[in-house]
Amino acid sequence: MEYLATIGVLIAIYVILSSSYDLIIGYGGLSTVAHPIFFAIGAYTAGLLAIHSSLPAPLNVILGGMAAMVASVLLAASALRVSGDYLLIASLGFQLGLLQLIKNLDFTGGPGGLTAIPGTVTGAARTPFFLVVSGLLAVATVLGIRAIVTGPYGRAITAMRDEELAFTALGRDATSMKIVIFAIGCGIAGTAGGVYAYYFQYISPDQFEVLQSAAILTMVVLGGMGTTFGPVVGAILLLAIPRAITFLNLPPSIMAPTQGIIFTVLVLLFLFLRPAGIVGLSRKTL
């Protein structure tokens, strides 16, 4: 039961991560691999505040999200000044550099990470509590992003992605819009990081490696990039199905590779059958 609940919390957190990543790359058309580090900024900020301050937990989680948002604005504003393509390089540098820093600083716990983060809620209510909180946050994220990508703002996002030069020449400030989209997506990732830190009470740098963005990207692409529910479906499938076989009680030597194989087969299968993702519309053939 505890195991299932943990998967539930993980799924909710990855729904938040993949949806916010989709907002940035799928809707915003921005290239970044730094999503794990903004997740980390939120996790470390909330974790450190939980350990060293007496601020209430919800505030710490929000501050974690805001820290990620501020960092993302600084990154995007300086990178986009150079060019849109530069953001990819800058995000890679930021991801690798900051994680390296976290691994080498004392107050972040170095490679060992932060341990003994206060749990806020204890006892039997703890797991259901986090399941509900993370679930509500996931729903709020999906609905919030849905609101952003529809209506007048969503129309602007679509036009910018379709034809940025014409969009800008019509008087639209594409650079500011990109910074805002990036900041919202990264702020959401940071908030998810805060919840993650409080739930697991332990965070370490290896949970936020650059390869995490490949995992999140896979969820987005598999489910359907640039769709509201694609990342949700992708996150659920890629987290739940490989874990489902743990109930078969296979020996670990068979279990681990089997999970890897299932993951890979799943991805390949869907990419062939539905290149636009499970939720994505099948593109009109030209």
């Binding site: 209506g151 007048p152 703002y153 129309r155 602007a156 679509t158 036009a159 379709d162 034809e163 014409a166 969009f167 019509l170 008087g171 639209r172 400030d173 500011s176 819009m177």
Partner: peptide, 21 residues
């Protein structure tokens, strides 16, 4: 033109001032 948008949407995005951005 904005290829994934309708004719009307192409026009709606184009006034000098567009508070929706």
């Amino acid at each position: 033109l904005f290829r994934t948008m309708t004719v009307l949407e192409n026009l709606l995005i184009a006034p000098r001032s567009y508070p929706g951005e």
